[in-house]
Computed example of a mutant assay.
Amino acid sequence: MYGWIWRHLPGNAWLRALISLVLTLAVVYVLFQYVFPWAEPLLPFNDVTVNDQ
């Protein structure tokens, strides 16, 4: 998959690396700003039960 993306990016290796970095940062931004906040209430990580002993 990564090879396919690399082959389809325009430019030389430096430009491809820069575009790859920008695309990676864009994906991380979208995940943290939109996807993770949307999914957080659906996850059971806040349902913690502690028993008194």
Rank of each mutant, 00 (worst) to 15 (best):
V50E: 09
F36I: 14
W38Q: 00
F32Q: 09
V27K: 06
P41A: 08
N51V: 11
R7Y: 00
A17I: 05
D47W: 00
T49Y: 13
V22C: 12
Q33E: 15
F32Y: 11
D47K: 11
P41V: 10
V27F: 13
G11Y: 00
L23R: 06
V28Q: 11
N51G: 03
R16F: 08
A26G: 13
P37M: 05
Y29C: 07
L9R: 00
V35Y: 08
L15C: 07
D47H: 12
T24N: 11
N46P: 02
W4S: 08
W6L: 05
V27E: 05
W4A: 07
L31H: 03
M1R: 11
V48E: 10
L21D: 04
D47R: 12
A17L: 14
W6Y: 14
V22W: 04
M1N: 08
L18E: 06
L18T: 12
W6P: 00
N12H: 10
S20D: 10
L31A: 12
I19E: 00
S20K: 06
N51H: 13
N12W: 04
L23C: 15
T24Y: 09
V30Y: 13
T49Q: 13
L18Y: 08
P10Q: 07
Y34F: 12
L15M: 14
Y34A: 09
V48P: 01
N46H: 14
T49W: 07
Y29P: 03
F32T: 01
L15R: 09
G3D: 15
I19Y: 02
L15Q: 12
Q33C: 12
W4F: 10
N51L: 12
A17R: 10
G3L: 13
A39D: 00
V35N: 01
L15N: 01
P37N: 09
Y29S: 11
A17Q: 09
Q33L: 10
L23E: 07
A26Q: 05
A39F: 11
L21S: 10
V50Q: 09
W4Q: 01
D47Y: 01
W14M: 13
V35D: 01
V27W: 11
S20P: 03
W14H: 06
L42R: 15
Q33A: 15
V27S: 02
W38S: 05
L43F: 07
V50S: 03
A17M: 09
T24L: 15
V22S: 08
L31G: 00
